[in-house]
Design a protein around this nucleic acid. Sequence first.
DNA 1: ACATTAAGTGATT
DNA 2: AATCACTTAATGT
Length: 216
Amino acid sequence: MADTTLLSGIFEPGLLHELEAHALKKTFEEGTVLLHAGQSVTHIPLILSGVVKIFRTEPDGRELLLYYVNPLESCAMTFTCCMQEVPSEITAIVEERAEVLLIPIDLMDQWIMKFRSWKSFVMKTMRYRFNEMLRTIDQLAFQRLDERLIVYLGEKSRTSGSALLHVSHEQIAAELATSRVVISRLLKKLEQEGLLLLYRNEIKLLSTFFDDRDPV
DNA sequence: ACATTAAGTGATT
DNA sequence: AATCACTTAATGT
């Protein structure tokens, strides 16, 4: 039986009942792989707490970060897969211990017809990711790496709710598809500009980092 | 004390 | 901006 109190704000009562009856609530530890590339999707995940990282694996073994799924969100890619039961193009891994509601995909069809709030939830997560992808394309096409790094750091801090980031240069490099050396240099530069402080496995964003930067 | 891993840096392309 | 080669610093055993 799933706890749906968190969801009562976004879903209508009938849907909450169905969720309680059919969704499985599970807790996954950090590092758990929820979905491998190539696997087909059997359940829609709905995140209650924690963070799940979604990325592509390139043929040469590098990974490319697509997005994070945060609490009260679901994964847009799984929607696109499950409609036609196509194997997944992406890998999903638990970044931070997560409670997840697993919804069997065959309920998707009925729910979309039956529940307004479900339909708008699906549309909303799709629209949100789509817009995000557009911004990402913008970045890749027009911004240099140092700007991407700043956006990345701000994003990290916003989603973790902390100015102290637990992340190594190596990890950042992997997620931005570049090398560690480059990240180290850029971070060093930002440190010298007084925007942040560097420690081993930790980066502290100073208030100057957030100053005079547009909020969205 | 030693090994391992993270980070810093000059030189080269 | 990427890569190499090397150094220095922090952390684990």
